[in-house]
Amino acid sequence: MIYGRRRIFVPLMMLLGFCFLYGPIVSLIVYSFNSSRLVTVWAGFSTHWYSELFHNDAILTAALLSLRIAAISATGALVLGTLAGFVLARYRRFHGRGLFGSMVTAPLVMPEVITGLSLLLLFVSLESIIGWPQGRGVLTILIAHMTFTLAFVAVVVEARLSAFDMSLEEAALDLGARPLKVFFVITLPLISPALVAGWLLAFTLSLDDLVITSFVSGPASTTLPMVIFSSVRLGVSPQINALATILVATVTVVVVIASRLMLTNEKRPPA
């Protein structure tokens, strides 16, 4: 009998859990196809809000800007974060290693408001001392995003490298490959899943950051989250639902592709 009950209980809990996690997203997607202007009343299926969205220049420019910022800052964070992760994983003993380690990972635990404010103060005083960066805008957003996302990349890369079997690199050296070649032919391919994961993480973090961006952005650099946030304050438009649906779909596709890539990297069936 206990088994009978368990057979119902476990799937039920799972269902409830999924509802809790994905219910809001599902309702958001459903209402993006609502023909009514009111978000809470279903008035029939329509793609009206999507076509309206694609004619909304403010949102489109902001989306494009956000994607560009996310791609560039994720790439920058990947390079810097990989270097930092490498140093943390490989050089176990040097002066100031402890300090370096906690400084790199500090943005993980630092409240965003503080990170944003301190970056703003930094940019302002830098401008008054050396005249660079001039004003706030895309450049300062990029620098800020790289600063806080590289910490995530560094942590992911360090974890992967700590589990890395050093004798693989030694074997490659032994067989006549020079250190730089070893890095590109052995180390890099083997940590590439971590690099892909780190880049995607940095990309999504940058894409949806609102707090830090608000501090360091200028008049001509309004990112997508800022547009959404300010438009929602004036009342929720179903356009935002449509926009969110597109974002969810994109992220899902990217994550599925990335995990597929990682799987084929791990084991390929015999040819």
């Binding site: 693989l168 030694e170 074997a171 490659a172 032994d174 083997l190």
Partner: peptide, 22 residues
Amino acid sequence: VPPYLRPVNMMFQSYALFPHMT
């Protein structure tokens, strides 16, 4: 003399095969 210039090859106790290569 670094390992890659020595006229020596070693077979590792842990094999150290490259997992991403055939």
